[in-house]
């Protein structure tokens, strides 16, 4: 199968500070990749570099065979990069529905379909973004990315700081997206056990470098690397 995303020799950072170095990985169509790592190892920086909002020093990012590393964020978005930032960054002055429609592009993900995935958003469609709870904001952030009908969805710690019941709801939705819809995705998570079951492959970052890459299933079967790099057990 042709690679949807192919990253090679990537180094990036902020200003002159290099955060990521020599990152390389591939992602096939319909595949989901888990990015694991402790706080501050550069997970967000990796996603942000794919989106185009950090400084890329070297390396290439090819989406569907086309180099996008030099393109502006809005162009990459047009080519199918959908992003759910760690801070969610929903448009607080816009209503829920406006958040979705302001950036929508034609494709299978219509407003209705987003509402079917997150019925809570439908209930709150006229409310302003600022009035949403944390979990609802996360749903809106995901819905907003879906509304752009991306080829590749980038999710930065989607369950961070949310109540367990909401986490359940979100994971159910993600499972549907990744397993049933077969949407290609990269999910950053600190809690490996939550996402390894729903991803195909996983990589672990340590101080801006990839220190482990394998199938998710393999990592679940043998959690040694998790213990070593994350200091947690796989359970």
């Amino acid at each position: 199968m042709a690679d949807l995303l192919s990253v090679e020799n990537l180094s990036a950072g902020y200003g002159r500070a290099v955060v990521l170095s020599d990152v390389a990985f591939r992602l096939g169509e319909g595949e989901a990749l888990a990015v694991l790592g402790r706080n501050g190892v550069g997970k967000t920086t990796l996603l942000d570099t794919l989106v185009g909002v950090t400084r890329r020093f070297t390396g290439s990012i090819a989406l569907g065979g086309r180099e996008v590393g030099t393109l502006a964020p809005e162009t990459r978005a047009g080519l199918g990069v959908g992003w759910v930032p760690q801070e969610r960054n929903i448009f607080r002055s816009l209503s829920v529905q406006e958040n979705l429609t302001a950036v929508a592009r034609p494709g299978p993900w219509t407003l209705d379909r987003v509402f079917r995935l997150f019925p809570r958003l439908k209930e709150r469609r006229q409310q302003s973004g600022a009035s949403l709870s944390g979990g609802e904001q996360q749903m809106l952030a995901i819905g907003r990315a879906l509304a752009t009908n991306p080829r590749l969805l980038l999710l930065d710690e989607p369950t961070e700081g949310l109540a367990p019941i909401i986490v359940q709801e979100l994971l159910a939705a993600l499972t549907r997206l990744l397993r049933e819809e077969k949407l290609a995705a990269i999910i950053v998570e600190q809690h490996a056990q939550k996402i390894l079951p729903i991803t195909d492959r996983a990589l672990i970052l340590e101080r801006g470098r990839i220190v482990h890459q394998s199938d998710s299933a393999a990592l679940l079967a043998d959690p040694m690397p998790l213990e070593r790099f994350l200091g947690v057990t796989g359970r």
């Binding site: 502006a72 978005a77 992003w83 960054n89 448009f91 002055s93 406006e98 302001a102 950036v103």
Partner: peptide, 14 residues
């Protein structure tokens, strides 16, 4: 309006 609130984020959404 979205860009007025956060131009960088809006740009990342196209």
């Amino acid at each position: 309006r979205a860009a007025a609130e956060d131009a960088d984020i809006a740009a990342a959404y196209g």
